[in-house]
């Protein structure tokens, strides 16, 4: 919604994909991994992994660094943290909206009684 919210909901979109969630988990567990290493643990092609990593990199959830002839990916925990905060905020907003609906409906109902 806001410019900040737009960016944060893209974090959500990037993470709501099960394959990308798995990749993030694996990179976290290994404290950094190459696409080749990830290909051993995920049943998709290296090109497929590269595509998912590119999306994760674009939203800033992982960052790439050269490690010899390979590229090593690490998870940016601040961005991961931001994604969960954004999710908490969306839930909180619905709780507030539902509370307002409850108040409005009960007030209206009392007035009609």
């Amino acid at each position: 919604m806001t410019a900040e919210g737009e960016h944060a909901d893209q974090l959500w979109a990037a993470l709501a994909d099960p394959t990308r969630q798995r990749l993030v988990d694996l990179i976290l567990a290994a404290d950094g991994a190459t696409a080749t290493a990830l290909a051993r643990d995920v049943p998709i092609t290296r090109q497929g992994i590269a595509k998912h990593l590119a999306i994760l990199e674009r939203v800033g959830l992982v960052e790439a660094s050269r490690a010899g002839r390979e590229v090593r990916f690490t998870v940016r925990r601040d961005r991961l943290d931001l994604a969960s905060r954004y999710m908490a905020r969306v839930l909180d907003q619905w709780d507030q909206r539902l509370a307002t609906i409850k108040h409005l409906a009960e007030t209206e109902h009392d007035a009609q009684r």
């Binding site: 969630q21 999710m87 709780d95 609906i101 409850k102 409005l104 109902h109």
Partner: peptide, 24 residues
Amino acid sequence: MVPDRISREVVIDAPPDVVWSIVT
């Protein structure tokens, strides 16, 4: 970890037609 859908609910002391008007 990150769901594609979220769900929340509330119980309101007013009949559905009143809640409907508030919601729409």
